[in-house]
Computed example of a mutant assay.
Amino acid sequence: MANYRLPDPKNFEHTIDGKNTHLITLTNRRGMQIALTDYGARLVSALVPDKQGDLTDVVLGFDSIHGYLNAQEKYHGTSVGRFCNRIANGRFTLDGQQYTLEQNNGENCLHGGSGGFHNRVWDRQVSFNKKVDFYYVSSDGEEGFPGELKTNISYELTNDNEIIIQFRAKTDKTTIINLTNHAYFNLNGEGNGDILNHILHIPAVEFLPINAKQIPIGDVLPVQSTPFDFTTPKKIVEGIGHEDEQLKYANGFDHTFVNTQPLSQPAASAFSEQSGIKLDVFTSEPGIHLYTGNFLTNDQGKGGQHYLRHGGFCLETQHYPDSPNHADFPSVVLHPGEVFESQTIYTFSLMK
Score class of each variant (00 low, 15 high):
Gly189Thr: 02
Gly252Val: 07
Thr175His: 10
Gly252Thr: 05
Leu179Pro: 04
Thr256Cys: 15
Thr158Met: 14
Ile164Tyr: 03
Gly191Trp: 01
Thr232Arg: 09
Pro216Leu: 04
Gly241Ile: 00
Leu263Cys: 09
Ile240His: 06
Phe230Ala: 02
Thr171Pro: 14
Pro262Met: 08
Ser269Phe: 09
Asp244Trp: 14
Asn178Lys: 04
Gln274Ser: 07
Val220Gln: 12
Ile217Met: 13
Ile277Gly: 11
Gln265Val: 15
Asn181Tyr: 02
Asn251Trp: 05
Thr171Ser: 15
Gln214Thr: 06
Thr231Val: 10
Val223Tyr: 01
Thr158Asn: 09
Ile202Glu: 03
Gln166Cys: 10
Asn186Arg: 06
Arg168Asp: 02
Leu208Lys: 11
Gly252Ile: 05
Lys234Ile: 01
Gly239Ile: 02
Leu221Ser: 08
Leu179Val: 01
Lys170Tyr: 08
Asn192Lys: 11
Asp244Ile: 11
Asn188Ala: 11
His198Asn: 07
Gly218Met: 02
Leu247Pro: 04
Thr174Asn: 04
Glu206Thr: 09
Thr158Gly: 14
Asp172Phe: 13
Asp160Tyr: 12
Asn161Ala: 09
Thr174Val: 14
Ile163His: 12
Gly193Ala: 11
Asn178Glu: 03
Asn192Tyr: 03
Asn197Gln: 14
Phe257Ala: 03
Asp219Asn: 10
Thr158Asp: 05
Leu247His: 01
Ala268Met: 09
Pro266Gly: 04
Gly189Met: 03
Asn192Phe: 07
Gly241Pro: 05
Pro227Ile: 05
Pro222Thr: 11
Ala250Ser: 11
Leu221Cys: 12
Tyr184Met: 09
His198Ala: 09
His201Tyr: 08
Asn161Ile: 01
His242Thr: 03
Asn178Asp: 06
Val223Leu: 07
Ser264Val: 03
Asp254Thr: 13
Thr232Phe: 13
Asp172Asn: 15
Gly189Phe: 06
Asp244Pro: 15
Asn186Leu: 08
Val220Leu: 14
Thr180Cys: 01
Glu206Tyr: 14
Val223Trp: 02
Thr231Ser: 11
Asn211Asp: 14
Gln224Asn: 10
Asn186Asp: 02
Pro233Asn: 06
Val220Asp: 04
Gln265Thr: 15
Glu162Val: 09
Ile195Tyr: 07
Leu196Tyr: 06
Pro216Ile: 00
Ser225Arg: 15
Ile176Asp: 03
Asn181Leu: 10
Asn181Gln: 08
Pro227Cys: 07
Leu208Gly: 09
Glu162Thr: 08
Ala268Asn: 06
Ile199Asn: 11
Ile217Trp: 10
Glu273Ile: 10
Leu247Glu: 00
Asn197Arg: 14
Gln224Lys: 14
Ser225Asn: 15
Asn186Ile: 12
Ile164Trp: 02
His242Glu: 00
Thr175Lys: 11
Phe230Leu: 04
